[in-house]
Structures are given as C-alpha cells and as structure tokens.
C-alpha cells in the first residue's frame, strides 16, 4: 500500500501510532498503548519485588534481638477461676492478659487485637477474648480468631507456675 500525506501537517514517521492523524485521541494513544502497558507491568513487578527488601533488612536485625525474660506476673491465689489479670510482657509497651479460664486453665496472650491494636478483654460468660472496637473475638484456649475482622492469632505468652507464683517465660507469635 503506498503512503501519502494525509494533511498539510502529516507526520512522515514510519510509526503507525504517530500516523494516526485522524484520531482525535492521538495523544492518549501515544501515551497509553501496548508498549506503555508492558513498561508499567515491568515497573510494577520491580516495585513489588524490591519492596520486600526493607522487611528482610528489619528481619535480620530482629534475629539478633533476644527479648524474652522470666517475669513474675501474679500469685496464683490472687487470680480466681473466671478472672483475668493485666500485665506487660516482654516490655512495658506490650500489654498482656493472664486468664484463669472457667475450665481452670491458665493462659496468657499479648492483648492487643491483631486487627487494629485495641485491647482485648476476657468474657467469662462466653469464655472468649473480645475486642470491643470491631467485635473481633478469639478462642481463649488457643488465641485463634473466631469472629470479626482479626485474621491472625494473639501472640501466646508461655507461662510457668512455681511455688504458687505465675511467671511469663517466653512468647510465640505463630502457634496452634
């Protein structure tokens, strides 16, 4: 097919996209086309891949942290069945809850909801941990979410009872 200028300002480029002189959206066609789409996809792929790097740097720093200590929480006889006691572990910023469940078990979790960090409370009547902000609830025996928006379990605090005193001795983030 022979080429001929389509108007006085006809572009003599060999690129078909440039020669679309009758197209009222020529600028958009030049800007948003197949090539630009692939370039965006490459940019997205690289951005996604490289955005994992800060996490691994922080994780490698976190591996050197040895944060857990043995901390006394409360005398066991001060915590009757069906009651809970607030404490902080492993630091003063990490709020936690020791629960003496109606079944007689002792369990402890960091009490910041894994949804939006609101403090959770022990509900004796339903034997579960409740976050009042968005009605998220957790199984008191496992710390796993059972209703509402939370997707992850509460960090489990390992406890020991020695001579009638309850101690926090460690913490697990993924359990059960």
């Amino acid at each position: 097919m022979s080429e001929c200028p389509k108007s006085r300002h006809a572009n003599k480029s060999k690129n078909d996209m440039v020669n679309l002189v009758d197209n009222v959206e020529q600028k958009e066609d030049l800007k948003f086309n197949r090539r630009a789409f692939l370039k965006s996809a490459v940019g997205a792929s690289m951005a996604l891949g490289l955005s994992t790097v800060p996490f691994s740097v922080r994780a490698m720093m976190g591996l050197t942290d040895d944060e857990e200590d043995r901390v006394e929480i409360i005398d066991l006889d001060q915590l009757p069945v069906g009651e809970s006691h607030k404490f902080y572990y492993p630091t003063e910023k990490d709020q936690a809850l020791l629960v003496h469940t109606v079944d007689g078990d002792l369990v402890a979790y960091n009490s910041e909801c894994t949804h939006l960090m609101c403090p959770v409370f022990y509900q004796k009547e339903e034997n579960k941990l409740l976050c009042p902000c968005h009605k998220g609830s957790y199984d008191v025996n496992s710390g796993q979410p059972i209703a509402g928006p939370p997707q992850r379990e509460l960090p489990l605090i390992e406890i020991e009872v020695v001579n009638g005193k309850v101690y926090a001795v460690g913490r697990q983030f993924r359990h059960g």
Partner: peptide
C-alpha cells in the same frame, strides 16, 4: 508473624523476579 527466618528467602525470590 515474627517468622524472621522465612522473610529473607521470600525477599530473595522477589528480588530475583524483579
């Protein structure tokens, strides 16, 4: 989830794919 030992392998795969 504080599974720090798993973060680096995932990150390496991400960077290689990039």
């Amino acid at each position: 989830g504080r599974e720090f030992e798993m973060v680096l392998p995932y990150s390496i795969v991400g960077v290689v794919m990039a």
